[in-house]
């Protein structure tokens, strides 16, 4: 199965809905948006959105989270 045409909007809607409580998400959280798709398809799509500059990775070093670019604590807050 292919992702729906409005997949990007679905991801952004999901992030928007949760934005009051979270600014960063685990990759697995995005699986729930596309329950019929395999994890690899969703991973590739999320990575594409990171490549397009819509989302960004945040890494603790041991695990990785994904958020809307510019949302939550940013590099600027670290004196950059």
């Amino acid at each position: 199965m292919a992702l729906p045409d409005n997949a990007k909007e679905m991801v952004l809607d999901y992030i928007e809905k949760k934005s009051k409580t979270k600014s960063k998400f685990y990759l697995k959280d995005f699986y729930t948006i596309f329950p019929d798709e395999g994890p690899r398809t969703v991973k590739n799509f999320i990575n594409k959105l990171v490549g397009e500059g819509i989302l960004e990775y945040w890494s603790s070093g041991s695990s990785t989270m994904i958020g809307l670019k510019g949302a939550g604590k940013q590099a600027g807050a670290e004196g950059e």
Binding site: N47, V50, G51, E56, Y57, W58, S59, S60, G61, T64, Q74, A75, E78, G79
Partner: peptide
């Protein structure tokens, strides 16, 4: 401070952000 959004373009790993809280 542990972690951050730093990295190189196209990669989601390989760089781990570290910042000092007494800069």
């Amino acid at each position: 401070k542990h972690g951050g959004i730093v990295g190189v373009f196209g990669y989601g790993g390989g760089v781990i952000g570290r910042y000092c809280d007494q800069p």
